[in-house]
Design a binder for these strands. Sequence first.
DNA 1: ACAAAATATACGCGATAAAGTATATTCTTA
DNA 2: TAAGAATATACTTTATCGCGTATATTTTGT
Lengths: 84, 84
Amino acid sequence: MTQDIARTEKQLGAILRRARKQAGLTQSDLGKRMHLRQGTVSRLEGGAPAIQLRTLMETLAALDLELVIRPRSKASAADIESVF
Amino acid sequence: MTQDIARTEKQLGAILRRARKQAGLTQSDLGKRMHLRQGTVSRLEGGAPAIQLRTLMETLAALDLELVIRPRSKASAADIESVF
DNA sequence: ACAAAATATACGCGATAAAGTATATTCTTA
DNA sequence: TAAGAATATACTTTATCGCGTATATTTTGT
């Protein structure tokens, strides 16, 4: 699964956490790459809604990820939380 | 063209602006859909980096868009998107 | 060219992010 | 099960959000 859909902050956080772990990084490691506190990374991954956009974009860059914006796919169930 | 890559806040803003116009909405129209002021929509579309994540997610929902997070495309042979 | 509509900015205000620093709590794993 | 590591929380300070409201500056249509 190289593509993950995020419609909520929580989904987005879960995706980022998985990507970070896959890269073998701790929150502190990742934070050091972009001047973010470990605690800030924790909030982002936890799905805090009031995180700043800059923080998200920096994190994506640090994890070598990119954002794709597209019309909502209809096929998928609206229910989410299906994190294994 | 149904998929737009955003690696910076400015790119993201431009994509949202295009989607809004395509939906035939003004910034005020869009703002009313989610309790955001016209001025806030303006900043988001302008690429302000300190916009809050919640604001982005609400805007995506109001425009019936979704976010996809994926590894950065290499732009070489692996770039499947540029078939057009 | 002009009026109307749309968008960009601005100010005060309450709320809150993120820094800096520290500690508590929850995993790991030897 | 007891470290040790990783993650979640907390407090103060500084900066900025988004609101409400208003206005300035484009952009659009006739």
